[in-house]
Design a protein around this nucleic acid. Structure first.
Length: 359
DNA sequence: ATATGGATCCGCCAAT
DNA sequence: CAATTGGCGGATCCAT
């Protein structure tokens, strides 16, 4: 059986440029990066391919490959060795998007003259040149960022500004676009940036499905990043809907029925539910339920509140209601969840079938 | 553990 | 005419 049903598209994907529907992406892997930073963005492209294929459009998507400054080992990590089979200057043919990966800025990568020359030569002909985290150093070293706006990981910003005074570095945003150059902050920002590319190329809904599919893997109880990842991947475009989403998280014990939320959004219930589902990717009721459980889990993990108190604070009419919701989605009761979490070293339900998938 | 009444969701069509 | 919005009814989900 297929353990992970792929989110399905409701509409046919939008294509911004019909002339180039299958896009070639090259990831430039540099010595000393982190495996997650290297593979994460590519995983997003691969998932986008799966989403598009399941929508009956295998002609859309990405052909992606990894290249390095030179053939050979680019990463040794805990007994894992990654070996690049292609050097970047061996690549032939047009590239749609180039993603320069993170690297160890104290290592030799910045002195790879041949790679830097290649980069400076091909960059003007590439539609999007992106860098993740410290990969921004490589773009700067190649002279591509002179007079441009850029960002990098906040921990590097001061050092970066000293080394490359001609680059206007801004530590605030998650990523910065200037012309065809896209620079991003930390590792997860690289994921966000890649997701933004998917949205640019094939529309918001495709990007949303990809995020949903991947968040699934990241959804680990007790992970602080979960909130931001979940919310970030679900934020609606339209202000009214975003306001409602914020309102839900800030007023979990209020009346969050479709009727009440539609009133806040000044829409008819039917239209509100439809627009909400279309924008956010889940129905209003589901969003509210997810939010309640998310915060309830957090309380169970990080506070000493009783189950009854948590149930009330999160908008459940009784502890029994909350219990049923927990059993439905996690397979354990709230008190059991807390007990296991208190002693758990790793994820609570390691390997258990995710109950929230409808079968 | 099960039955029931209400809420929610979704397809369809009409109105704007 | 195309796109957005609103209303209705039936199937399903969920709280009690």
């Amino acid at each position: 059986m297929d353990p992970l049903p792929l989110p399905q598209l409701k509409r046919s994907p939008r294509v911004t440029d019909p002339a180039a529907t299958r896009r070639r992406v090259v990831a430039l892997a540099l010595p000393g990066g982190d495996p997650l930073e290297l593979v994460g963005p590519l995983e997003i492209l691969g998932t986008a391919n799966m989403v598009l294929e399941s929508a009956g459009r295998p002609d859309l998507g990405y052909d992606f490959e990894v290249a390095a400054p030179a053939k050979g080992v680019i990463l040794e990590w805990k007994g894992l060795k990654l070996i690049a089979e292609r050097a970047c200057h061996e690549l032939r043919g047009p590239i749609d998007t180039l993603i320069v990966q993170a690297m160890d800025i104290s290592a030799a990568g910045l002195r790879e003259r041949r790679m830097l020359r290649w980069l400076a030569r091909v960059a003007p002909r590439i539609r999007r040149v992106a860098s993740v985290c410290s990969g921004t150093y490589v773009l700067a070293e190649a002279g591509l960022l002179d007079g441009r706006r850029a960002t990098t990981h906040w921990a590097f910003c001061d050092d970066f500004a000293r080394r490359y005074p001609r680059v206007r570095v801004d530590p605030e945003p998650i990523f910065v676009q200037d012309g065809n150059l896209y620079t991003s902050a930390g590792a997860t920002a690289g994921l966000d940036l890649t997701l933004a590319f998917v949205e640019q190329d094939f529309g918001r809904e495709v990007a949303l499905r990809v995020a949903q599919y991947l968040v699934f893997f990241l959804k680990r109880p007790g992970n602080q990043a979960q909130f931001s990842v979940q919310m970030a991947s679900q934020l609606a475009e339209r202000d009214v809907i975003r306001d409602v989403q914020t309102y839900v998280y800030e007023n979990l014990d209020a009346d969050l029925s479709v009727l009440a939320l539609a009133k806040r959004a000044a829409m008819s219930p039917r239209n509100f539910a439809r627009v909400f589902a279309e924008q956010v990717g889940v129905t209003p009721g589901r969003f509210v339920e997810d939010a309640r459980q998310e915060i309830a889990r957090e309380r169970l993990e990080q506070s000493k509140m009783t189950v009854d108190e948590i149930a009330a604070a999160c908008g459940y009419h009784s502890a029994e209601t909350m219990r049923q919701a927990f059993v439905r989605s996690l397979g354990v009761s709230p008190s059991e969840y807390r007990r296991r979490f208190a002693s758990a070293v790793g994820p609570v339900r390691n390997g258990a079938a995710p109950a929230e998938i409808d079968s």
